[in-house]
């Protein structure tokens, strides 16, 4: 705090104040301790299992031995499908919300409300929705395609929100300046606004990928359990988080490789988080834009 006042306990309430002060430091200490306990366990138990072979080998003996190569491939394919569907959709939807409608118009309020509600829907509900729609009704079965499409529905709200913010963060001056130079609205959007908001759009993309990486419940009943190397998008593919779930729940003695997989997943998520932080940092520094 910037004000340095006398914080010594005074008169009768002194003990009470000391107690409050102690509790105020105790709570974050408990949280930090729990966090370090968890991270410490993950690193200590996982580090022994991760080596180059673990990354490039196929799972053997139901995952107790061997590696996770097909699982990494499936994870990337699911995310690829999710991104390929969700990013164009979100980009245009965000353009609509930010450039083609005012916030007070009923249409855009309905869209916003619907997206906020969608963000609140539990992931297991997305799981059974995807299972009923993509796997059964549309006949895609348990496949990487079903999983990716389900995930795309799930990450839409967060993608649209961040992309809309990124587009809105381009200062009004740029729009007016471009229009004054005779550019039409579509030219302003394509040549000025979108290039300027690329860092913010990338942040949205990475947030979506992060959510997708962490997701389990929406994928178990859509992309399935099969741990072989997928040969097409219509094959079932097991993602990293499902692999962890399966090893810990259904495979006795799978804990060691489960922790090793957690470590791989953790590194991927850390890379994505650092990417977001770096993008935010550099975009702020370069142009004064924030997202």
């Amino acid at each position: 705090m910037s004000v340095a006042l006398d914080d010594r306990p005074t008169n009768a309430s002194g003990h009470g104040r000391l107690l409050v002060l102690a509790l105020t430091w105790l709570a974050p200490a408990i949280v930090a301790a729990a966090f370090l306990w968890l991270i410490g366990d993950v690193v200590l138990r996982g580090i022994g299992g991760v080596d180059w072979n673990f990354i490039v080998d196929v799972p053997r003996n139901a995952g107790r031995a061997g590696g996770i190569a097909p699982i990494i491939v499936s994870t990337f394919l699911v995310i690829l499908v999710c991104v390929a569907v969700a990013v164009p959709l979100s980009l245009f939807a965000a353009l609509f919300l930010a450039e083609f409608s005012r916030a007070s118009v009923p249409m855009s309020r309905i869209i916003r409300l619907s997206l906020n509600c969608l963000a609140a829907v539990p992931s297991i509900v997305f799981g059974i929705f995807g299972n009923a729609l993509f796997c059964v009704a549309l006949g895609m079965g348990y496949s990487i395609l079903s999983g990716g499409l389900t995930l795309a529905c799930m990450v839409l709200p967060i993608l649209i929100r961040t992309m809309e913010n990124a587009i809105r963060a381009v200062p009004e001056d740029y729009r007016l300046g471009a229009a004054a130079l005779g550019l039409s609205k579509s030219q302003v959007i394509i040549r000025v606004i979108l290039p300027l908001s690329i860092p913010g759009l990338l942040v949205g993309l990475l947030l979506g990928v992060g959510r997708a990486l962490a997701e389990t419940a929406a994928l178990v009943f859509t992309s399935g359990y099969v741990d072989r190397m997928p040969s097409s998008l219509l094959d079932s593919g097991r993602t990293l988080s499902i692999h962890i779930l399966d090893l810990s729940m259904n495979v006795a003695g799978g804990d060691k490789n489960a922790y090793a997989s957690v470590l791989v997943l953790g590194v991927l998520i850390l890379v994505i988080n650092s990417g977001i932080a770096a993008l935010l940092f550099f975009s702020k520094r370069r142009s004064g834009l924030t997202s």
Binding site: L95, S108, L115, A132, L156
Partner: peptide, 20 residues
């Protein structure tokens, strides 16, 4: 395209509730 993308995104919720 931006209008239809917005409409599609908004209808995902309706679709999910309808399917379930």
């Amino acid at each position: 395209s931006s209008r239809s993308a917005a409409a599609v995104s908004a209808s995902v919720l309706v679709l999910a509730i309808a399917v379930v």
